[in-house]
Write a protein that binds this DNA or RNA. Structure first.
Length: 354
DNA sequence: AACTTTTACAACCGCATCATT
DNA sequence: AAATGATGCGGTTGTAAAAGT
C-alpha cells in the first residue's frame, strides 16, 4: 500500500512559490479545473509535484479564500469547534467559509493556544489548568484584601459560562458559609504551594464540599449562557463527528465523584475567559438553548457543557450585526470579556440548574 | 545600527483513507 | 483480496518579518 512521496522525484522544485509559478498554476486551474494533481504540474509547465501544487492552490491561491485577520466570531467558532472536534482542522475549516485547515491550524497554534494557556485553560482538553496560572498571586491577593474569599465578587468579575462552574460557585459559596476555616486553610495552603496542581488537604473531602443546595439562592451574581456563536444544531452536528474519539475532552472533572478543593479553586481562578455576555442585562438568563441538566458525568452529558468554551460571542455566527469588529486586538478582546456581566434575578431558582 | 530572539505562516513530510485496477 | 495510485489530513519545519536588546 505504501508509495513513495511524489516530491522525492528528482528535478522537482521545493520551497516558496514564486509569483510566476502562482500565475501558471492559477491560469491552468482556471481553464482546466483542479483535477488530477498528479499530471497537473507537467501540463501547467511547473517543476513541482502535484502534492505541492494542490497545497498551494487549496491553501493560498484558491479565489474563495478569505485573507486577513480572524474575526472575533471566527475565533470563537474555532475554539468551540476545537473543544468538540479536537485537532480535526479540516472539519473545523469546513464550518468556516473561506478559511483553510492549514490557516486555522496555524492560527490556533500561534494565537488561540497561547491565549488559552495564558488564561489557565488547557488547549487540549479545554479544561481549567491550575498549573498554567500563577495561583499564588491570585489567592494571596484575595486573602490580603478580604478575610475570606468573596465568591460573589469572583462570580462578578470572572463570570462563568459553564453550568458546571456555576455549580462550583454554589458549592464554594456554601463551603464558605458553613466551613470558612476549611476553605481559608485550603486557600492558604494553596498559596504556599504555589500553583501545584492536585494539592488537596486531606481534611477537605468531597463529602464536605458536596452540598447543600438550599443556600443556592443566595448566589445571585453570575452569568449563564444566553447566546452562542454556533447554534445548538450546528454544534450537535459537529459533536456527532467528534464524539466518539473526543468524549473525554468534553467533561470537566466529574463533580459528583471527583470534586476536590483543587478543582473548585481551579475552576474559580482560572476562568477569566469563561464569560458569556449579553449586551442587554435584561436578557433572560436561561435561554431556550440552555440546557441545564444533570452534571453527573458523561452519561448525563449536557450540550451546554460542551459549549462552555472561553469567551463566547455575543452574536451568532450568521448574525449580520457584529459586536466586535475584526480589527479588535487580543487585549481588547480580553478586556471586553470582563466588561459584560449581568445579574441573576432573585426569582431565578438556581436549584433548577443543579 | 547591529545583533538576537520571537512570531507568524507557508510549505513540507509522512501517514491514512478511499478509489481503482 | 491485494496492489497501486490519488488525495486528504495533521504534525512539523523553515524562514521572513517583527520585536526586543
Amino acid at each position: 500500500m505504501g508509495r513513495t512521496p511524489c516530491c522525492d522525484k528528482n528535478g522537482l522544485k521545493k520551497g516558496p512559490w514564486t509569483p510566476e509559478e502562482d500565475l501558471k498554476l492559477t491560469n491552468y486551474i482556471q481553464s482546466h479545473g483542479p483535477a488530477n494533481w498528479h499530471t497537473l504540474p507537467k501540463n501547467a509547465g511547473l517543476q513541482r509535484c502535484g502534492k505541492s501544487c494542490r497545497l498551494r492552490w487549496t491553501n493560498y491561491l484558491r479565489p474563495d479564500i478569505k485573507r486577513g485577520r480572524f474575526s472575533f466570531e471566527e475565533e470563537e467558532t474555532i475554539i468551540q469547534l476545537h473543544s468538540i472536534l479536537g485537532n480535526k482542522w479540516s472539519a473545523i475549516a469546513a464550518r468556516l467559509p473561506g478559511r483553510t485547515d492549514n490557516e486555522i491550524k496555524n492560527y490556533w497554534n500561534t494565537h488561540i493556544r497561547k491565549r488559552l494557556l495564558k488564561n489557565g485553560i488547557d488547549p487540549v482538553t479545554h479544561a481549567p489548568r491550575l498549573d498554567f496560572l500563577d495561583l499564588s498571586s491570585i489567592l494571596s491577593s484575595t486573602l490580603c484584601n478580604q478575610s475570606l474569599l468573596n465568591v460573589s465578587n469572583l462570580l462578578g468579575t470572572q463570570a462563568l459560562l459553564n453550568p458546571e462552574l456555576l455549580r462550583l460557585a454554589h458549592t464554594l459559596l456554601s463551603l464558605k458559609q458553613e466551613n470558612p476555616e476549611i476553605l481559608l486553610q485550603y486557600l492558604q495552603q494553596s498559596q504556599l504551594c504555589d500553583s501545584q496542581q492536585n494539592l488537596v488537604p486531606s481534611q477537605l473531602q468531597p463529602s464536605q464540599l458536596q452540598d447543600p443546595i438550599q443556600s443556592a439562592s443566595t448566589c445571585t451574581t453570575s452569568t449563564i449562557p444566553c447566546t452562542s456563536v454556533l447554534s445548538q444544531t450546528e454544534l450537535m452536528q459537529a459533536a456527532g463527528e467528534g464524539f466518539s474519539s473526543n468524549m473525554t475532552n468534553f467533561s470537566y472533572p466529574n463533580f459528583q465523584e471527583n470534586l476536590t478543593a483543587s478543582t473548585l479553586i481551579n475552576a474559580f481562578v482560572s476562568q477569566p475567559n469563561y464569560v458569556h455576555c449579553s449586551p442587554n442585562p435584561t436578557v433572560p438568563l436561561v435561554s431556550e438553548n440552555s440546557n441545564f441538566q444533570s452534571l453527573g458525568g458523561s452519561h448525563n452529558f449536557s450540550f451546554d457543557s460542551v459549549r462552555s468554551t472561553p469567551i463566547s460571542s455575543p452574536t451568532p455566527l450568521n448574525s449580520s450585526s457584529t459586536f466586535i469588529n475584526s480589527s479588535s486586538t487580543d487585549d481588547e478582546r480580553e478586556s471586553f470579556s470582563s466588561l459584560l456581566k449581568f445579574e441573576i434575578p432573585e426569582s431565578l431558582d438556581i436549584n433548577d440548574f443543579l
